[in-house]
Simulated assay, not measured.
Amino acid sequence: MCGFIQRVTDCPAVIDLLEEVGLTTTLPLFKEESGGVLNFYPAFGKNPARKITNLITAPDNVIDATWWFDARPEGDGLVIGDRTTFNARNLDSPFWKHAVRYQRGIVVATAVGESNPQGKGKVHYLMEAQGAMLIGAVYRQFDNGTAACAVITRPPHPRFSQFHEKSIPCFLPHNRDAVNAWLNGGPDDPVVSAILDEPKLYTGLTVSEVKTFKGGEKNGDSCFLAPSGEDIV
């Protein structure tokens, strides 16, 4: 994922989805998000203030985590490492293995941003959910009270690759049992393994080419990317 999450925690679609998957207990824990919509970006420029807020780590816990997994505590803050780690891709690597097995979290989102190369530059796509969506993440917490995280991505998906050729975000099923397994299941939970091994779209996405993710100004028509198992419209 190219470093953009748009979320509205007081949005009816978000509330409905959290109720559907049994996570409404997290809503009172969410920090207030003034303005209703937030744009999240990874900690490029080694800026630890760039965080994903209200990352769900358990049905009774949320954290704010710097969006860059390679980090270390220093004083009451974090120092960002040189390794590019806002996305967790090669999950067989020892770097990710412990977190994927024991420290899985959930990002609640209403849109994501992706990019694909074009000529000497890139084309940017705003992908707005038909409601809301859940995205798998990993996190680590430090003794000074800070935390770091990464969004899990999986190998290229045949329908998603036209918008991002390298990977697809690890979208999570809108299902109570699956969400419970993701947060509480053991390191070899078969439900978790299936989610990681078989990436799918669980909600429709309206895809628009944009000049920038933050502005969201669209460059022409949009298309609809249907959930897995349905035809593309």
Rank of each mutant, 00 (worst) to 15 (best):
F44K: 06
I63P: 00
N54V: 02
E20K: 15
N54Y: 01
P42A: 05
E74L: 12
N87T: 06
G45E: 13
E32H: 15
T24Y: 06
S34M: 14
D70T: 07
A65N: 09
L78A: 12
N39V: 06
I56R: 01
A43V: 13
G22K: 00
N39D: 12
G36S: 14
D82S: 09
N47L: 15
S34E: 15
V21N: 00
V62C: 04
N47G: 11
N39F: 14
E33T: 12
T57S: 06
W68N: 02
A49G: 10
T57L: 04
A49C: 10
V62W: 00
E20W: 05
G35E: 08
P48W: 04
G77M: 03
S34H: 12
A65P: 09
L38E: 05
G75P: 01
A49K: 05
L55Y: 00
T84A: 10
K51C: 06
F40E: 05
K31Q: 14
A49I: 12
K46F: 05
R72S: 08
E20N: 13
V37R: 09
E74A: 15
T25N: 06
L78V: 06
V37S: 10
I63G: 00
D82A: 11
Y41I: 14
N54P: 04
G75W: 08
W68A: 02
F69W: 04
A88W: 02
D64G: 12
L23H: 01
R50M: 13
Y41E: 09
G22V: 01
T53S: 07
V62T: 04
D60S: 10
T84P: 04
G22T: 01
S34D: 07
V21L: 05
V62M: 03
V21Y: 00
F44P: 10
K46D: 14
N39L: 10
F30G: 02
D82P: 04
R83G: 08
F69M: 07
E20S: 14
V79I: 12
K51L: 04
E20R: 15
T84D: 13
L55S: 02
G35W: 06
G36E: 08
I63C: 05
Y41D: 11
S34T: 11
T25V: 13
K46L: 12
A58L: 07
L38T: 10
G35H: 06
D60C: 10
L55W: 00
P48F: 13
E74Q: 10
T84L: 13
R83L: 13
F40V: 05
P73M: 11
E20V: 15
G45K: 14
T57W: 01
G45N: 14
N47F: 05
L27K: 03
F69T: 03
G36M: 09
D64A: 09
E20T: 12
L23M: 11
P59M: 04
V79D: 09
G77V: 02
A88K: 03
N87D: 14
L29E: 13
E20Q: 15
K51D: 02
G75A: 15
P73L: 14
D64K: 06
G81E: 04
R50E: 14
